[in-house]
Simulated scan of single mutants.
Amino acid sequence: MKQRASLRDIAAETGVSVATVSRVLNDHVNVAPRTRDLVLQAVERRRQAPVQRTVYVRCPYVLSDYFGLIVSSIAETLKLHGVRLLLDAGESAQHTEALRGLPGQEDVHGAILILPPEEGDELVALARAGFPFVVVDPRTPPPPDIASVSAAHSAGARAVADHLISLGHRDIAVIAGPSEWLAGDARLAGHRSALAAAGVLLSTDRLRCIEPTTAEGRRAALELLALDPRPTAVVCFNDKVAVGTMQAARSLGLKVPEDVSVVGFDDIDLSEATDPPLTTVRQPLQEMGSIAVSQLMRMLDGHRPEALHIELATTLVVRESTAAI
């Protein structure tokens, strides 16, 4: 089909029939010299014309604020480079073996994988096949030779704990993400280190590890806020979990931040729309997307990435959901 399409394109460009183009390409003698030259020149132009690159972007999640910002940044940066985007998004993509077939797709030149659910050995196999790709926000620690871009999760979490400690909080509960996630482990380590520096240990009854959704955040917060004594602050894995925590506090007749301070992570648009506005950690989501494209373009041009594992700085954004005790 590709060959027939090419024949039609050349025929349309030169003003001759598809049959004549075919006779020229098959070196038939009954073609006028001028027509033969015309067709061969058109063929040569097509051979020399640059092939537009296509990059496969896989985000096997709903394109909410968090993932949507990353994908939008990737799309805009690819467009600046004149690269075509092939997007595979939505939770159904989690159940497809998308990576195995990539090296055999001639019309896909590289990939950007956002929080890939695949195990590290599958990423290693893709790299060994010579297929260029970059991981954004890796779920597990990326293998040494695989390029990745993420936020400085541990540093962001330390900033949150330091902020609460400076306000006088010592009884701080943590609603963490899944224990097998790199971001969850790094943020929890950041919280623990800051608390330990202040002489505070995070006890197991003050810790919940959950799927980071509003509903799960509300459920976990109801458990934590029912403890006696009640924690004076709750640190949440992301802004959606923080919203669930604020809902739980309200349902128990507690005020934020008068009775309990609440902190999120990500700084999506939702964090400014809460009542009160949410103290959170801003992740450089758009920068993560654009840098991933820059790294991939270097690889497509035959160069090594400037750095294999890039961590971008986070920023603590203090709003009205935290207060001194």
Rank of each mutant, 00 (worst) to 15 (best):
E106I: 08
V149P: 03
A111E: 05
C209R: 15
R45G: 12
P212G: 10
Q52K: 14
R187F: 07
V318Y: 00
T279C: 10
D228G: 08
F237P: 10
A151P: 01
Q105A: 11
A197K: 13
W181F: 14
Q286T: 11
L69M: 11
V149I: 13
E119Y: 01
R100L: 09
I10V: 15
E122L: 02
R304P: 03
A176H: 05
L85E: 07
R100K: 13
P116L: 07
L285R: 15
D266V: 11
R218W: 02
D145K: 05
Q52S: 14
G177I: 05
V29Q: 11
A292Q: 06
P276I: 04
A324S: 15
S72F: 05
E122V: 06
E223P: 00
G15I: 02
L87E: 10
G264Q: 02
S72Y: 06
I10P: 02
A49G: 01
S72C: 00
S6F: 07
D239H: 05
L113D: 11
Q283V: 10
C59L: 12
D269W: 00
G217T: 06
S271E: 09
D228H: 12
R298A: 13
T140H: 10
R36I: 08
I146F: 00
P212Q: 09
E306R: 10
R187V: 10
A89I: 12
P142N: 07
A273N: 01
K79F: 07
H163F: 03
D88Q: 13
L224S: 04
A226F: 00
V243D: 04
A189E: 11
S72H: 11
R100D: 12
R304T: 12
V135P: 06
A215C: 00
L202Y: 09
G15Q: 09
A75Y: 01
L278H: 01
A249Q: 03
G168V: 09
S92F: 01
V293K: 03
L102H: 04
I268M: 11
A273C: 01
P276L: 09
R282S: 12
H169G: 10
H169W: 08
F67A: 01
Y61F: 15
A196W: 04
A19S: 15
P277C: 09
S179T: 15
A324P: 00
A32H: 14
L296Y: 05
D301E: 15
D266H: 01
R36M: 09
G190W: 07
A159E: 12
G199I: 12
M246I: 13
S321C: 10
S321W: 08
V18Q: 13
P212A: 13
V260F: 06
L87C: 11
L308V: 13
T77L: 04
R128V: 07
R187W: 05
A249I: 05
L40Q: 13
L78A: 02
V21S: 09
P229E: 05
L167T: 03
T214D: 07
L278P: 03
T279E: 11
E258I: 08
E118T: 08
V174H: 12
S179Q: 14
D137M: 06
I114D: 04
F133E: 05
L278R: 06
L78E: 01
E180F: 14
